[in-house]
Amino acid sequence: MTWVNRTFNTWQNSLTIASASDLFIKIVYLVLIWSTVKLLFIGNVVWGDDYFILLSDPFTGPDRFAMLLNIPEVRSYYLLFALPFLGLIVAGLFGFHNVLTRSVVWFLFINLHFGNGSVSTGGHHLIQQLLFFHIFLFQVNDKKSSYLSSLGRFIHHLAHYSIWLQIAILYLVSGVWKLKGDLWLDGSAMFLTLSFKEFGFPWLANTINENTFFLQLLTWAVLAYQVLFIVLVWIKPIRKWVLLFGAIFHISIIFLIGITDFGLFMIASYSIFINNDLADDILRKLNPKRVIGVSA
């Protein structure tokens, strides 16, 4: 039996990554709850009538449904997008989700995301893609035996690894475009970025007077990480070290550069790489019944 046939059979017979997918959905939803709630406090400016961004409504036909909040008359009803979205992801956090709710979450996120391009980051673009794939994370019990169940398990595996690939594509695209410039290759990109108080802190911008070897090394390390991630992440023995580097990088983006959404979305997306056994362990420990001490 070839490797391909073996994989096809395994992916149809049992859901070997069910807990990893489940944990991924919960962590992404948790970060989305934070992001949505903080924006709801200024919702009327972000999505509603008090906007001062430039709206863009270039599409006709079905595509217009992705940009509904760019239609001024629709913005008065932004809560009809934001609140159901919030409700569905809160319910999803507690395990109440299915293919329909996940599809609606993707659709509403697209509208909320495109409803204000100014607050968008690469993390938002990534999450939009990951939420598309999460639609196909069908929860099919291993004990269910039917052609439909086998199909569900097979597609779940494909969607799960598509999320891996999509994260890797983000880094590849970002890295390759950086290679087309000058400053990442000559090691001064980080120096220039941190010289702006807007991408750090005033004290930091005023302190860094010249490009140190440390800043150059940091610039090249980030570039190498982004270009090589698509290869390195598939190599099991080094995966956790690769992800650890990435997590530290994204945490520093949160606290140093200050692009919090991007950093948190990226760290949340890393949860898809958590080993299924570990994910299972984490989910059992976080089980609400266990947390509040109710016996099952």
Binding site: T121, F132, V173
Partner: peptide, 20 residues
């Protein structure tokens, strides 16, 4: 791809901005 699968990962690329 556009708009449903539109994705933009060009922040700080090809070079970081020179002006704000």
């Amino acid at each position: 791809s556009v708009p449903w699968f539109y994705q933009n990962y060009y922040m700080f690329a090809p070079d970081p901005t020179y002006h704000i």
